[in-house]
């Protein structure tokens, strides 16, 4: 059975590193893996997604509407933007973190405070305070690996040697903090 993990966020949040670690781990665990990313203008603050699929034999790297087993959102509004891609009965992991779209910065319109309620109302939603945890660990940027940790746990992928994957794919000065971030993410869910 092919499983689908949809990672979404805002350009610059580190979804790309998270999906790189995830897919590398899955490959080393012996799965067939495919991943698709559209990142043309992602650096300019746009909405980004990494679609990860794994199993015995994966055909499409792209997740269908209603096809994701888990939706992992690095930002609240992005979870709602991509919600139609979640399978009925699928899980949401959402970072309790908001980045205002530019159109809201100039004061025209508000960032809704009902997003988490809407998510919880529609699906099994796990809210993760990854930003707070990352700051506790000493670097807000490891938010992405915290969320990866939560995903790994919820998808029952703890068996994979994630520490080794981190050691091989992260700059040496950041290896320790990322290992701790991954563990913290697992502990949060």
């Amino acid at each position: 059975m092919t499983k689908s993990i949809l990672l979404v966020g805002v350009g610059g949040q580190g979804t790309i590193l998270a999906s790189k670690l995830l897919t590398t781990g899955l490959m080393e665990a012996g799965y067939d893996v495919k991943m698709s990313e559209i990142h043309g203008m992602s650096q300019r603050g746009g909405s980004v997604s990494s679609q990860v699929r794994y199993g015995d034999k994966v055909e499409s790297p792209v997740i269908e509407i209603g096809g994701a087993d888990i939706l992992v959102s690095f930002e609240k509004m992005e979870a709602l933007r991509w919600l139609e891609y979640l399978k009925i009965g699928g899980k949401i992991v959402v970072n309790n973190f908001q980045i205002k779209p530019v159109s809201l910065l100039s004061g025209k319109g508000e960032y809704s405070d009902k997003i988490l309620d809407e998510l919880k109302d529609k699906a099994d939603t796990i809210i993760v305070d990854a930003a707070e945890k990352a700051r506790e660990l000493g670097n807000e940027r490891v938010m992405n690996v915290i969320l990866l940790g939560s995903t790994v746990k919820l998808m029952n992928l703890q068996e994979i040697d994630w520490d080794k994957i981190i050691e091989e794919n992260v700059k040496s000065q950041f290896v320790e903090i990322n290992k701790r971030a991954l563990q913290a993410g697992m502990d949060l869910v």
């Binding site: 805002v10 203008m41 300019r44 603050g45 746009g46 909405s47 509004m77 709602l80 933007r81 919600l83 139609e84 779209p101 530019v102 159109s103 809201l104 319109g109 960032y111 809704s112 009902k114 997003i115 809407e118 529609k122």
Partner: peptide, 11 residues
């Protein structure tokens, strides 16, 4: 679901 809360994020 209620999509009205979702605002576009143009580059």
């Amino acid at each position: 679901y209620d999509k009205s809360m979702v605002v576009p994020r143009p580059p």
